[in-house]
Computed example of a mutant assay.
Amino acid sequence: MSHEKSFLVTSDGFGGQQPAPPGPPAYPQPPYPVAPYPQPQFAPAPYPQPGFAPGPGPYPAAGPYPPDFPSAHWDDKSVRQAFIRKVFLVLTLQLTVTFAFVTVFTFVKGVRGFVQRNVWTYYVSYAVFFVSLIVLSCCGDFRRKHPWNLVSLSILTVSLSYMVGMIASFYDTEAVIMAVGITVVVCFTVVIFSLQTKYDFTSCRGVLIICLVVLILFSILCIFIRNRIVDIVYASLGALLFTCFLAVDTQLILGNKQLALSPEEYIFAALNLYTDIINIFLYILAIIGRAKE
């Protein structure tokens, strides 16, 4: 900056020029920093906001995972395998109890005569079975609450086992044994086929429910039309329908098709398989019993 004096033209009464007062001295300016600017050493790291994950999205949606499995997904293979083992363990215990009742009611003459004379016990067991079935089917929170879900399933199993044993007591011993053997072969074959096939039976669930309604209406017709051929046709359709239901429920447990059951629903899954197998046995027993007449 120039240090020469600057002059102002002022009127001093004589027409002369008067020098201007000196300005402030020009100090050298400090150099400006060039971007990027250094950050202070004590600057805190950015903290994540509460309720949000740090970093850019997208974020995975929160799933219905219980506190027992905070890091496991329901589609995880180990979780699904543990679920399948639990379902078949419960199912094995149910079938063991049921066929133990069938064995006692068929081969022990004293018990067989008692249940045939006291038919009212069948209706009592049916009422207990129906109430427990409604509770387990409609109350999702209850059937997932341990140990009450197991208690209710045990009551249902005992009541249905009594009904099945009482029905079997009115048939010949040979017919009951044949029905048990055919049921074992059919169910084992359907389960293995459902595990191996690539066909999705779960997509046919709606059609099977409609067929079940038709079968119920057909059973009402059979009450008024007492005919051996009609009874055999009705029992055959029932056995075929519940065989299809067994295939569907098996694939629902596997979880690799269009529809799947949650691993929390092991009681509901065991209940579905159990009722399918029992209905197959009863319909096959009715076919053999009517054929022997």
Rank of each mutant, 00 (worst) to 15 (best):
S6D: 03
S6E: 03
F7T: 00
S11G: 09
G13L: 01
F14T: 07
G15M: 06
P21F: 02
A26Q: 14
Y27G: 12
P28K: 14
P33Y: 00
P36V: 00
P36W: 00
Y37W: 01
P44A: 04
P46H: 03
A62F: 11
P67H: 04
F69I: 08
A72W: 11
D75P: 03
R80W: 02
R85Y: 14
K86F: 07
T92L: 14
V102N: 02
V102K: 01
T103A: 15
T103P: 03
V104S: 02
F105L: 03
R112G: 00
G113R: 06
V115L: 00
V115Y: 04
S137L: 10
L153A: 05
I155V: 15
S161R: 03
A168S: 15
S169A: 09
Y171R: 13
I177D: 11
G181I: 13
I182L: 15
F188G: 15
F188N: 12
V190A: 12
S194F: 04
T197Y: 05
K198S: 13
S203A: 13
C204T: 12
L212Q: 10
L212A: 13
I220R: 03
L221Q: 01
C222G: 11
R226K: 08
N227C: 01
V230R: 00
Y234V: 06
A235E: 06
A235W: 08
A239Y: 10
F245M: 09
L252Y: 02
K257V: 02
K257Q: 02
P263K: 06
D276E: 08
I277W: 07
A286L: 14
A286P: 07
R290Y: 11
